[in-house]
Structure formats: structure tokens, C-alpha cells
Nucleic acid binder design. Sequence first.
DNA 1: CTGTGTCAACTAACATGTTAGCATTCCAAA
DNA 2: TTTGGAATGCTAACATGTTAGTTGACACAG
Lengths: 237, 237
Amino acid sequence: MSLPNEQDPDEIALPDIGKLTGSLAQRVYEALRTAILAMDLPPGTILRKQLICEQLGVSRSPVTEAITRLAGEGLVEVVPQSGSRVTKFSMSEIHEGAFLREAIELAAVAKVAAERTEEQLSELTRNLRLQALCLEDNDEAGFYREDQRMHELIFSFTGYPKLNTLAAAGWLQVNRARQLLLPIRGRAQEAYEEHKVIIEAIRARDPEKARRAMRKHLSRLVTRLEPLIESRPDLFD
Amino acid sequence: MSLPNEQDPDEIALPDIGKLTGSLAQRVYEALRTAILAMDLPPGTILRKQLICEQLGVSRSPVTEAITRLAGEGLVEVVPQSGSRVTKFSMSEIHEGAFLREAIELAAVAKVAAERTEEQLSELTRNLRLQALCLEDNDEAGFYREDQRMHELIFSFTGYPKLNTLAAAGWLQVNRARQLLLPIRGRAQEAYEEHKVIIEAIRARDPEKARRAMRKHLSRLVTRLEPLIESRPDLFD
DNA sequence: CTGTGTCAACTAACATGTTAGCATTCCAAA
DNA sequence: TTTGGAATGCTAACATGTTAGTTGACACAG
């Protein structure tokens, strides 16, 4: 296998690692992960351990561990005895991630709809009101944050802590690709309406309705990603 | 956090790594994983890097990487600056793994039922006939192998290669705990009947029926694990 | 007997030296 | 011009030395 050097800048844009906490390996991991997801390290970028070491002021050990973990998540490809680079997008991986996410989240929302407590319901409706507030203020970023929060709430209400982690792992490629999309006018409002239906189904303790509503909600994004393979073929393999 | 040394044998039963292929880290990983899943390293066992290094004749690097990977799978706990040990069972983790597996496999079997080709169907029915043969011969091990194979086939027919990996990861704790159960007489026959229903649903291209049949099939095992927490409390935390 | 502080032994985490495999380059021969 | 192969420069993989934090035993005071 080969590693054609698509580009090799002498400087890489990496967040400062001093502000993070935890072990060095953990901090390096987060720094690289953030940079990859923000497309500061675009797909195809070759990762030079030595360069990263110098720039962050650490030795190769924590950098190696960080890259190993990123490879486990599918964000980095390691070619034995040769090199590592940021993975390109692959439409089939995106579809697989979306399928996985859908499988997990549909099961989660059905379980929550069946077993929810009053407390959980009021936390969800409170979150929904926050979303409405963000919409009124045209606060796109805030809406995105609360959107994400709603999904996390649903996962946490299942009582299964690792579910959110795994769903996020599957969703990772989708999220990375989403950075390339411009926000569509009116999409937030549309998403809000879909959220309302989901939470209404949870309120009514109707698992099947919750599943249907969630499925509809999730299917939106992937279809919007399809055109990317035409407009940015350099990012796919 | 503490690491009370539940037991510290001078010798650990580890498979020879000479017969395996791939990098040293990979071989050490497989050796440890096999030993843990076979309960040769029971829950609570403290892993001494140095000892493992000496016994396998390798340095600490590949052993460290192997343990890191096992920690990522949840088979090993690492206490910072202190030590590592084989994780004990936790009924909530088992439930979570089963939930995850169910979510993924129900989605998979529904997709396969909806989209299956004639070729795929005949591969499944061929597998089913193999199962019947094993039953006739009272070949429990063979039946278990073909059982597993059937689930792998279903995953692979979705066209999503990582699905099987993730479902297996979720199922890991369940499988480990299953080692403790004695095979129940007649269970294989029962499982075979359930498999027949699943494949019949796939033949009929009936996703909903396939889901129901698969759900019934999967739910069997977890309930059988429940009593373990009473009979072997030392393995739980 | 009980709680507390010191200290020794152990560990993971980190740093760094070494080895070996792959790819690219470039030059020479056909 | 093309091909093939030796040399070079890169890398991951592995080995090993160093550092610093945690545990747990033991002595000692209350």
C-alpha cells in the first residue's frame, strides 16, 4: 500500500494542549480529534509523528497511543511500517454509520417511550422549550447544541451509559462530513417540528410512533450528504 | 481506587504466541483475549506486565498496547499509575450489551429480510441444513459453530462489514458469562426451531416477522444468565 | 484496639534508543 | 524511452531507561 503525499505542510494547525486535562495521551488524542473533526486536518493529510511531537512538546509515546485510538475510531488509517493519514470519506461508511445510529437510537427511543418517568418527560419538554427559544433568537449554534442535547437525554434515559458513546462513534463520519454542508435556511425549524413529534410520542408512551418519528428525523441528514461525492470528490476514496 | 490482590499466581495460563501471525502486539492481544474469554484469567485477576513479558518473551511495548486495546473493549480495567486487572461481570453491562446486540441485529435481520437475494437465501438454508446435521449427530460444538455462522451471515448480507464487529463487541460480556453455564439439554433443538422461523421470515421477505423471531431468539440467553449473580457472586462487582 | 503517618515497593505513564520494512528516487543498462 | 535495481530516507514497531503517583504494610501514638 502506498501513501502518496497529497500535501505536506511544515506546520499543522493544532489546538494548544496545555488547556486540556488528563494524561498527555488523552490530551494529544483530543487535540488531534478536534482538529480532524473540524477539518483543520482534511482527509488525506499525512500525520508525521515527529512533527506532532515537536509541535506539542511531548515524546512519541503519547502521540502513538493517540493515533492508535483514532485508528480504532476510523478517523486515521495506519499503514504498517509506512505511515498514518487522516481517512478519507467513504459513502458506504457513512451509510453504515447512519444505519448503526438508526438501529441504536430507534431501540433507545422505543424503550424510553415505553418506560419514561414524569421527570424524564419534563426534562425533555424543558429541552424542547429551549430549542424554541433558540429558534426565536435565530441562534443556530444554540439550537444545534440543544438538538444534540436532546438525543443525549434520550440515550441516558435508557439507563445504558455506553449507548451514547457507540451511537456517537457510528455517527462520527456523518458528523465530520456535515461540516461541509452549509446550513439550509428553515432546516432548524423543520427539525424542531420533528423533535416535537418525537417527544409527543414519548409523552403518549407510544413506542411505535416514537420509532417512526425518530426514523424520519434521522433519515433527513444522510440524503443531504449524497451530493458531496460529486462536489468534493477529492475528499472521498 | 484499590487493587486488592484477589490471587497472584506466579504462573499464568497463556496460549503460546508463536503459532499466531501478525505483529507482536496483535499476537499478545489475541493470546490475552482468548485466555480471558476462556476464563483462564478469571474476573479479578491482576495483570502483571512484567510477568507477561517474561512468559511470552517480548518487551513491554506490545503488552502495553494489547492491554490498552483490551481496556477499550471493556475486558480489562486500568487504574492509572497503579495496575490493571480483568474486569468482573456486571449485570447492568450484560443487559446493556444484550440491548445493543438486539438493536443492531433486529435492524440487520429486517434489512436482510427486505432485500435478500436468492443466493443469500440459499446460503442461509444451506447453513440451516448443516445445523440439522449437527443435531442429528449430537454435535453440540458443531451446532454452536453453525449457529454463530448464521448470525455472521445475516450481518454480512447487510453489506455493512463493521456491524458484526460492533455486535460482537456488545455481546462480549454475554459470551464470557455464558462459559459459566452448563449446556441445557434440548436447548440446541429449541434454538434450531427458532432459527427455522427466522429464515422462513427472510424467505417470505417479511421484515416484521423476522424482527419478532429474532427478538424471541435473542431474549432466551440473557434470562438464563440472571441466576449467576446468586451462584457466583465472586465474579460480579 | 484503632486511627494515623511514614516509607518501601510496585505500577502506569512517559521518554528515548534501536530495528526493520516500505516507498520513492535516481541512475544505469537494454 | 523504458526497466530494473541499488541507495536513501522515511515510517511503525519494538526494546528499554526514567519518572512520578498509588498502594499497602508497618510502626507508632492515642
